[in-house]
Design a protein around this nucleic acid. Structure first.
Ligand code: NAD
Ligand code: NAD
Lengths: 219, 219
DNA sequence: TACTTCTTGTGAACCATTTCACATGACTCC
DNA sequence: GGAGTCATGTGAAATGGTTCACAAGAAGTA
């Protein structure tokens, strides 16, 4: 039975926690840990051991009773579940403040997300070189996205133009989009869209401070 | 009764949705809407009308039966609930790729988050000017944070040093931290810590693609 | 082999969040 | 002012997510 074929619908929180486990397992591997228990993993993530075991149990049984999980083995399993055991071909649109920062971010490539195309509509940016990638004209989006076999797009353009660009991106056949603009974008039902909203986290902090909310587990 | 005094513990999802409502209300205001129904608000956020009404009901009753909510009035209420009806004095630590992008981001100030101090440990950056703010030496963190009456910190330093810096930030009396490094930071129980983790959203997209998850409501 | 210790995997119980459904109130129009 | 329409606010029901609790497997010891 393949680990990635999930029977039940898996919750968003479970997937997010898998990301956390993955990061911690990478660390444990560097620290030369051979095995790790759900208890130890939970402690590091400020979760309960039962939560860790339940999350993993949706995808199979990877541990050994009495021993725990083999660190490297579990890491590979999670890689396969999350689909980061392959090379994703990613285009980034909008090489501005945040876009430039993202291009320089090496962690993405380490997890299989390879930004191999950049697009902008600013003549001063088109043709310029960022980390070895030449910025393309947004006008050539459809053609170049198809040619380069891009399957994911990071959108870092002003909110005002995001919807137009997303429409073009969808036309070009891309089905996964990570959007940084603070807008609700419309996409067809077969396209996966996630939003990165930094104001939201600041607002959460603000709410917590004003309401003297006892801080609980950080997100 | 003050709207910000919440009787029950309010869920994280409710607060995040308030952020969404706030953004949409700002938009509706610009579009000269006088009132808005839970139905319309829900449609724009891809939620149910009941969800919208329930979220708001935790804080009071702001609507008019048969009419809906007054756009401006509700916006002000949410501002007060989220605590963004005031000026937050924010310091940003680590003026690198992502740090520079965040300093340039005007949206934060518009929501009351004023970045008024920058810190770095790189001699080439210390003393330089970013958007009118001179970068301070991280060595002076405690002194300057206290002097400037900072109450929130955005942390954009390498993961390897984040814990040390966070310890200093806490020593300086700051109780709200937004961390961009992919690490689990330890803070005392009275400090609010949130993490911004961009890899997580890419990994979610990857998972969704690989598992042919029917895309649902975007985050 | 028998005994102890450790820790998984998982139904069942518990708790939280979302959705339903409807009584209630506000406004409009004849 | 009575009838009709619309949309809120909220208990109650339904759904979904987390934690409990324990049977059972694995390894070590003697
Ligand atoms: N800067 C931040 O820290 C930050 C934080 C959170 C969210 N965001 C969001 O990210 C987006 C980008 O922000 P930024 O600060 O990088 O802005 P920016 O203006 O620096 O960058 C936007 C880039 O998009 C390009 N662009 C504009 N129209 C285009 C088009 N039609 N086709 C292709 N490219 C186009 C511009 O030339 C520019 O290079 C915005 O939606 C912003 O709200 C930014
Ligand atoms: N670049 C991105 O797009 C991106 C995306 C997600 C997360 N992050 C995270 O954000 C953090 C910063 O990333 P970046 O790409 O901006 O890196 P960067 O190296 O460009 O910036 C880091 C900055 O921190 C400063 N710094 C280092 N040690 C310091 C210290 N002890 N005290 C004060 N300042 C110090 C450096 O001088 C530099 O200016 C990292 O943890 C990274 O993982 C970055």
């Amino acid at each position: 039975m393949s680990a990635t074929i999930a029977r039940k619908r898996i919750s968003e929180s479970t997937i997010h926690r898998l990301s956390l486990y993955y990061r911690t397992l990478s660390l444990l591997e560097k620290e030369n840990y051979e095995t790790v228990s759900s208890k130890e993993l939970a402690k590091r993530e400020k979760l309960t051991p039962a939560q860790v075991r339940k999350d993993l149990s949706f995808f199979g049984s990877f541990g050994t009773r009495g021993l725990g999980y083999n660190v490297n083995e579990l890491k590979l399993k999670i890689e396969s579940i999350l689909g980061i055991d392959r090379e994703w071909r990613v285009a980034l649109i909008g090489v501005g403040n945040i876009g430039s920062a993202l291009v320089s971010y090496k962690e993405f490539a380490r997890q299989g997300f390879h930004i191999i195309k950049l697009f902008d509509n600013d003549q001063r940016k088109i043709g310029s070189n960022h980390k070895g990638i030449v910025v393309s004209d947004i006008k050539d989006l459809e053609k170049e996205v198809k040619e380069a076999n891009i399957s994911m797009v990071i959108l870092a353009v002003p909110a005002t133009v995001s919807q137009y660009i997303v429409d073009d991106v969808v036309k070009a056949g891309v089905t996964a989009i990570l959007n940084f603009a603070p807008v609700n974008l419309r996409v067809p039902p077969f396209v996966h869209l996630r939003n990165e909203n930094m104001s939201m986290e600041l607002e959460y902090l603000s709410f917590a401070m004003v309401n003297n909310h006892a801080p609980k587990k950080p997100k």
